[in-house]
């Protein structure tokens, strides 16, 4: 391939990504060391003042803790449930494509619509929660999204409901592509279900699981839409996320530099996870 060919092939993507992603991200990074905002007349160097403001803000501390819990709980759940459904669907089955399509539906619901939907499903007058409790003869419950202790687990459950089907969708082609003989060999060798999972299924899709984990971690770190409607970050700061914090600072309280800086802290978190991912993924490729 000639140099001219490369220019033709890479230039359109380079323009798109530079103009609408990389350049804004880097300008944003520069701005975090200043008092810059779209409305300031004079830009002054501010050193690490923005970072100091954020790191000493208990609200950001709460958001960082919440997102750590969210990621550590939601990502494994999404992987396990998504893998489980894909495992059930891996072999031919009557109506398999219909099963697959129906089980992808939750992912087609936008995160914001999912927040709206669960807001009402947890509400007492017409919700599914109190309907079931009513049949069991139990009294109505307050929405768990409004409960200080239950709000974060609730937000996690809602997100797992939406994302696990996407994991199934991503895993299924690779799981079904494992040759039948490999399952048969394992079965003949007397492997139990756990044995087949550990010896056949997981090794075959390990690099793919790593890639999906990277995407899910990024998705979890950026959690915004679902929580915005479901809890708005509350009660108190029980479900506040760094993305809600950044948005609130930049566009709610007009504290643009703080918002841009905490946005960059999310980027730093994802890039750190990305560095680990690149290491693991390239080690695998060398093998």
């Amino acid at each position: 391939m000639s140099g001219r060919d490369r220019i033709v092939l890479f230039t359109p993507l380079a323009i798109l990504l530079t103009g609408w992603l990389v350049l804004p991200a880097l300008l944003g990074l520069l701005a975090t060391f200043t008092n810059y905002s779209p409305f300031t007349a004079t830009v002054r160097f501010a050193g690490l003042a923005n970072y100091a403001t954020i790191l000493s803000d208990p609200q950001f501390g709460a958001a960082a803790r919440n997102i750590a819990v969210f990621t550590v709980v939601a990502v494994p759940l999404e992987l396990v449930i998504g893998f489980g459904i894909a495992y059930l669907l891996r072999r031919p089955l009557r109506g398999r494509s219909l099963w697959r399509m129906l089980l992808l539906l939750p992912w087609l619901v936008s995160p914001i619509a999912s927040g709206v939907m669960w807001h009402f499903l947890f509400g007492s007058a017409t919700g599914v929660l109190d309907f079931v409790l009513g049949w069991l003869g139990q009294p109505d419950l307050q929405s768990p999204a409004g409960d200080l202790r239950l709000a974060l687990p609730t937000a996690i459950a809602v997100e797992v409901w939406r994302v696990a089907p996407f994991v199934t969708f991503l895993l299924l082609p690779s799981l079904s592509a494992i040759p039948g003989e490999r399952w048969d060999e394992a079965t003949l060798a007397g492997a139990s279900l756990a044995g087949r999972l550990v010896k056949v299924a997981i090794p075959s899709v390990a690099p793919l699981l790593l890639t999906i984990t990277m995407l899910l971690v990024g998705l979890a770190f950026g959690t915004f839409d679902t929580v915005l409607i479901l809890t708005g970050g509350g009660p108190g700061t029980a479900t506040l996320t760094p993305a809600l914090y950044s948005y609130g600072r930049a566009f709610g309280t007009n504290d643009w530099p703080v918002g841009a800086t905490s946005g960059w802290l999310i980027a730093a978190g994802v890039l750190a996870a990305g560095a680990i991912y690149l290491r693991l993924a390239t080690v695998r490729n060398v093998e």
């Binding site: 944003g28 995407l215 971690v217 915004f224 993305a243 980027a267 994802v270 990305g274």
Partner: peptide
Amino acid sequence: SLPAMAYVI
């Protein structure tokens, strides 16, 4: 994997 929040501001 980078969330849009990282650079959308």
